[in-house]
Design a protein around this nucleic acid. Structure first.
Lengths: 126, 126
DNA sequence: CGGAATCCCATCCGATACTG
DNA sequence: CAGTATCGGATGGGATTCCG
């Protein structure tokens, strides 16, 4: 779409910052990992233990994306065997501020959402 | 929140409210539609014009999910041809409060994210 | 006008096996 | 220990067609 055509006040659909951020934190593991690292820096296997259901494949992939986007840092120690420490970067810590608002909202309103869902599904069935 | 098993302070991986909310607003169209409806209630075709790239299939599907979760309301007028009006429900308006924080954060920090990305990609290439 | 049904492709993600 | 490579099922979402 053209630069001028958007009907959204704060929202230009192309190169949209919010889409960009949402695509990242909206995936299955990103937020879990960030919430793990905000408590304390951790190594690969420690994160995997803290997020039990994640596979090595997804952990590796999600961590790399987080590092690429400047949300976390990655530091390699040439011990034997080598260890790698991940930690929050300033940008990631900054992100968790609005995110924690959303987390709180979700916890506060989850009951309402589930209730609405049941009403809808029952009306649909009846 | 969870009593026993979770390693995450505020995060129980099963039946997680945040996952639930994130799955919904993290999809491709939900936020766009909410931001369209917060300005004014609108009919199906009006929303589709306001979000030009969306297909009828995805618009219909996303609207139904939003209604199911209590975020928007749907009112049918038996005119000829019939018209259907969608509008924000209280729950949806409440959600937009923390969401607008996130939108603002994304806009404020998008430059940093893109810069981090370029650094990472260049280090990778070199 | 406001959908539902179908088809199909792209991406996500888990499981497994292998490597330095 | 900290990954990478490959496969395959599940899901997301676009295009098209049909319906009340």
């Amino acid at each position: 779409m053209s630069a001028t055509a958007s009907q959204h006040p704060d929202f230009d659909a192309s190169r949209c910052p919010v889409r960009d951020v949402l695509d990242q934190i909206g995936d299955k593991w990103t937020l879990l990992i960030l919430l793990t690292l905000v408590a304390t820096p951790a190594r690969f296997s420690a994160i995997q233990r803290a997020v039990p259901d994640i596979s090595k494949r997804m952990l590796s992939q999600t961590l790399r994306n987080l590092e690429r986007n400047g949300m976390i840092t990655r530091q390699v120690f040439a011990t034997k065997p080598p260890s790698v420490q991940y930690a929050m970067a300033p940008l990631g810590e900054a992100l968790l501020e609005p995110m924690s608002q959303l987390v709180k909202w979700a916890e506060d309103h989850h009951r309402h959402i589930r209730a609405a869902r049941e009403r809808f599904d029952q009306a649909d069935a009846g």
